[in-house]
Amino acid sequence: MKSADGDHIIDPERQETREQQADRNWSELLQEMRVMETGTQILAGFLFTLPFQQRFGQLDDIQRIVYLILVILAAVLTVLLLTPIGLHRTLFRQRLKHEIVERSAVIVRIALIGAAVLAAGTASLVFDVVVGRAAGITVLLVLLIVVGLLWLAYPALVGRKSTPNGVRADAEEGS
């Protein structure tokens, strides 16, 4: 099937060409990256202010190492989330939008894992300092389990209950 301008439609349901689909996917990916970048920047800002607090000097060696790992992770995540923009800026005139979207989606998936570790690690460090090491480790494990459930198990459950066209399987049975 062809569109009005002669391009092949790859998604008849949406009436989209490959280029239109890539543009839509890029736009959605940018929105997701904006949210992730904001969260990463907030956590990084929090981490960057810690050395200027009076109690920072009281951290033990493990807490300092965890802190430095979290600072590095926050910086790497910031760069990682900017990588799709750099990729787009470098390649956008080469008509490679589909490839840019595919590569950027992989980067965002990796950044999601990093964001989960950063959030859980930061909360763990705070609990370690305020309550104790056992509480810090418990918070780390609980938050990583919660992230796993919400980001992996829950989407799998939703996907299993839906059909490819987005209609819930049990809704189709009832009609």
Rank of each mutant, 00 (worst) to 15 (best):
L143R: 02
V126F: 00
V126W: 02
A74N: 08
L81W: 01
V126M: 03
V130M: 14
A105K: 14
A153M: 15
G114W: 06
D128H: 14
L68I: 09
Y154K: 10
L81V: 06
A120S: 15
G159S: 10
W151F: 15
T138M: 05
R93I: 09
I110Q: 03
G132H: 07
L80C: 09
V158Q: 04
L141N: 05
F127K: 01
A153H: 08
L125I: 09
A115P: 00
V117R: 03
V101S: 01
P155S: 00
V117Q: 04
K97T: 13
L144D: 08
A74P: 03
V108E: 13
V142M: 00
L144A: 03
P84E: 05
L152S: 08
I69W: 06
A135L: 04
Q94C: 00
L80I: 10
R109G: 15
G86K: 07
L149H: 01
R109C: 09
R95L: 12
V131C: 11
A134E: 14
L91W: 12
L87H: 06
E99T: 02
V71Q: 06
V79C: 00
A75M: 09
S124P: 13
V139N: 04
H88E: 13
I145V: 15
E99G: 00
V129F: 08
L112G: 15
Q94I: 07
T78F: 10
Y154G: 10
V76P: 05
I72M: 13
A134R: 11
H88T: 03
L112K: 05
A153E: 10
I85P: 07
I72H: 03
V158T: 08
V117G: 07
I145W: 01
L77P: 03
T83I: 13
V139A: 11
I137S: 06
E99V: 02
